[in-house]
Design a protein around this nucleic acid. Structure first.
Lengths: 340, 340
DNA sequence: ATTAGCACTCTAATGGTGAGAGTGCTAATT
DNA sequence: AATTAGCACTCTCACCATTAGAGTGCTAAT
């Protein structure tokens, strides 16, 4: 259906459009790719490519821009050959930054910022999933009136803290005893399992500790993890962007509305995390009206060889996919290393 | 200099402009405030107010909009009388949300989102400052190869975790011993002090533990706190907004550049946190060229009666200051309560 | 199969026009 | 002295017409 020259021309359209953000004309292609044919021939091919749905015109007398189908073809068939590699400076910067970052949360935040900067799009990081980790250690620390910090350590070396409240006073000694019991009952089980089985298992001890009625609620919440935090906290930008000051820009508005509802992005990324090395989802493929002009490139990362999360680039469909892939690839490697 | 009628007229200009985002004409003022004078009289006063620098015209045949000086006068002299109180539903929502939020980080994030939504501007929360808190308890938890989680508990009931690395293996027993020593040496001292004195004090024990050379580095970092985290991490939006897709909107661009360099906002908020109940900084008063069309309203919050941080609204100078103040006030109260 | 050539279409920039908004001034009024 | 009616003046904004230029798609020739 598509011969070699047409491939080349489609490739040219995609590249030139990615670089210049302007519709690509037949002359343009000739100038930058000096093919051994005339612009008229290129025009004929362009017409065909358009009929096949790979490119389109914004209006009659404009050049062509890729359709989602065009980007898809580029990404699947053409992009593989090329590599838009990172410069040595870029690589060096990534390595340096990862050296500076000390704890888990700094690393996550840093990673998303690095991706943003290096791709000139929005970097998105899905934090490691721990529910499949198994319990290695648990500690309780009493703060003051009925507030307790639970620290979990998992087999892969993550530690999670959670602040809990109870309605009853529990002594430090009781808590030590509970920690011992939990460790005994659940050591080596996944957090997910524990969360499900907690009540059943722990009721064994009901008789002994029945005076501490409300502690059961406490344990029920213990293994239910979804923490979040930062040192300065920005809220949603989308509200401000609704002010008339920003009214030219409904697109940003809609986009931010979507993005800042975090579960939207989580859903998109989760869906493709198990699929393969990379997933690229283009425009309409995202099946969200707001997102029809945006694409997402997703790269899972592993910790100690186990799939744990994903890093990703979100930007206009016109984004530099090749660069995104390179950036994600390099960062995912370093991230895996630093988290392992 | 400014008589009663002029005050009323300035008040009208500010209010009408805040509500409609359009220059306010003399007729407009007459219609909405039916003053016992004609529009010609109002025009005379407007002329005078303009000469005094409280209002200005975007162009010859337009109505007036407030200058920074005009907003300043409004905020200082006029706004006090009125209250743009929260509706019962709004109050209820805040209360409900704070019930849901369990741990410290959830609360911070939630607060900023609440402010964003209720003011239709950007909510900014400066997390509690703990360096003045005093040490109440310290625990070390060993994860695996040379990674250790430090948990600090302070007198006001905060707990902070920090992941640390060492180059040497330290036994659990050693760590228990160190925790005991640190507690003995520093109990009741502020984290700030401890951070400064750590090395001097701890060298007393040098002789006994000198085999653990590199542990001293470890302790040096121990009380140096600036944590950050979240479950999904967005990077900087500003890079994406530099793409030609968004080019109409340099203003957003500049603003985001500024905002997402977090220390910029921290500096602004820190500066006025100790001043008073509220601080309102208007446009040029921020002394930042990018921010000349934006204002910030800042409200400190207290935990157990002690000043600990601030919550704040950032938006166009045309923002509803009265509403911002009400929202911040109510939220600060609830926040103080929930954190105490 | 390719290409030169050209008519055709559409955009974007330019400038002109007129309506309308709102001022600022003057002269009259209270 | 303060207020007001009245009006000329200025500027914006929307509308339209015009034009240059970009780029196509088709036809006929190679």
């Amino acid at each position: 259906m598509i011969n070699d020259r047409m491939s080349t021309i489609l490739d040219a359209v995609v590249h030139l459009y990615i670089d210049n953000a302007e519709p690509v004309s037949s002359e343009m292609i000739l100038t930058f790719y000096n093919l051994p044919v005339s612009s008229a021939t290129i025009r004929n091919d362009l017409l065909l490519l358009e009929k096949l749905g790979y490119i389109k015109k914004p209006h009659t007398s404009a050049g062509r821009i890729p359709t989602d189908k065009g980007y898809r073809f580029y990404v699947d068939q053409l992009m593989g050959k090329e590599v838009d590699a990172l410069t040595d400076e870029e690589k060096q910067e990534i390595i340096e930054q990862f050296k500076i970052a000390r704890d888990y949360y700094e690393i996550m935040k840093l990673t998303s910022k690095l991706i943003s900067r290096l791709t000139n799009n929005l970097g998105v990081v899905l934090a490691p999933n721990v529910v499949e980790d198994t319990l290695k250690d648990i500690h309780f620390i009493v703060l003051n009136n009925q507030r307790i910090v639970v620290t979990l350590v998992t087999n892969s070396g993550f530690s999670f803290q959670k602040m809990m409240r109870t309605n009853c006073d529990i002594s430090e000694n009781n808590l030590k005893e509970f920690a011992r019991i939990i460790k005994k009952e659940f050591y080596g089980k996944s957090l997910e399992e524990i969360n499900e089985e907690m009540l059943n298992q722990i009721y064994k001890y009901y008789f002994k500790y029945r005076t501490l009625e409300s502690i059961w609620d406490f344990f029920e919440d213990c293994f239910d993890f979804t923490e979040e935090d930062a040192s300065i906290f920005l809220g949603n930008h989308s509200y401000m962007l609704q002010q008339p000051e920003f009214k030219e820009i409904e697109r940003i508005n809609y986009l931010f509305d979507f993005i800042e509802e975090e579960k939207n992005l989580v859903r998109i990324i989760r869906k493709s995390i198990f699929k393969k090395q990379f997933d690229i989802i283009i425009g309409s493929e995202l099946e969200q009206e707001v997102m029809e002009n945006y694409s997402v490139v997703i790269r899972p990362y592993h910790i100690k060889g186990k799939l744990r999360g994903a890093i990703s680039v979100l930007g206009p469909t016109r984004m530099n996919y090749s660069k995104s892939v390179s950036v994600l690839d390099f960062i995912a490697q370093k991230l895996s290393k630093v988290l392992s």
